[in-house]
């Protein structure tokens, strides 16, 4: 935000929005977000409200900017050289790009799960305990153990690993590793969990388990998921946003997007004509 913004390309372009009367109130809001990688603009004027305690899916062809937008929400783009973000993203009215905001605290509130499972080369226990330890969430050892066990339970992994908590996390199967990463994210008690194509490296069975898990997690967490798979978006999300060439083309209740898209490009993508 400190950088002077090049004038964003403001063509006559308007996101098509469908209101959802049943949606939960939104605490996470984006307004007019532009992202630049050096001279190249990757996102154009994206505005969207993310309803709390539900699953929002970002879909679109490769390179459409959906992952870029996701990474703006917990400021993971900060570490990319030459990346600039303009516009507002607010959580409970607090601007995430405020210079006074502590990125470290922000990321404890907005957790992230990546495309490829990336457990640390440590034991299963240490993987989950990593966040609580660095944020000082546990008073003592029993407290820490409780956090680890309950996080593993919430991620649906505890029954499978309870006998080998001190075995290396990298020794688990792909799907288990991804659930370990979800447990790791849950352990710091975030409000929002961002998932960047969490199932694209997994087989169908592991994918089904993760999707079921996502559905359970929305009771307590606001979840934003980026996915390549339209079926997955249709299965797990309540709200869907379609991105194309860096623009948010259409957003609305998932059912509406898939059964009755109002924008031609959305329809083309859903029916497989582009992408």
């Amino acid at each position: 935000m400190a950088n002077p913004a090049p004038t964003p390309a403001m063509e006559s372009f308007q996101t098509v929005r469908t209101a959802d009367a049943n949606a939960n109130p939104a605490r996470l809001k984006a307004d007019g977000v532009n992202v630049f990688y050096g001279e190249k603009q990757a996102l154009f004027d994206v505005s969207i409200d993310i309803p709390e305690k539900s699953v929002s899916a970002f879909i679109g062809p490769s390179g459409c900017g959906k992952s870029t937008f996701l990474r703006c929400i917990n400021r993971m783009n900060d570490s990319i050289e030459g990346c600039r973000v303009t516009g507002d993203i607010t959580l409970d009215g607090e601007n995430l790009y405020d210079a006074r905001l502590d990125v470290v605290e922000l990321r404890a509130r907005i957790g992230m799960v990546f495309q490829k499972p990336n457990p640390f080369p440590k034991s299963i226990f240490e993987n989950v305990a990593y966040g609580p330890k660095i944020h000082g969430l546990a008073r003592d050892k029993t407290d820490l153990e409780e956090i680890v066990v309950s996080s593993l339970k919430k991620a649906g992994l505890f029954e499978e690993v309870k006998d080998r908590l001190h075995a290396p996390g990298t020794g688990l199967s792909g799907g288990q590793q991804q659930r370990l990463c979800i447990a790791r994210a849950i352990a710091v008690g975030p409000e929002v969990i961002l998932m960047d194509e969490p199932c694209s490296a997994l087989d169908p069975i592991a994918t089904a388990i993760i999707e079921e898990l996502i559905d359970e997690l929305r009771e307590n967490y606001t979840i934003v998921i980026v996915t390549h798979s339209m079926q997955q978006a249709a299965r797990v999300s309540q709200k869907t946003a379609f991105f194309h060439l860096g623009k948010l083309i259409e957003e609305g209740p998932t059912e509406g997007i898939f059964t009755n898209p109002r924008e031609k490009r959305t329809q083309d993508y859903i029916t497989g004509r582009i992408g």
């Binding site: 917990n74 570490s79 957790g111 990546f114 640390f120 966040g131 994210a185 710091v188």
Partner: peptide, 12 residues
């Protein structure tokens, strides 16, 4: 991915 994983947990 390990670096990102740790940063995304809110580690400095």
């Amino acid at each position: 991915s390990l670096r990102d994983g740790s940063l995304a947990m809110g580690a400095t």
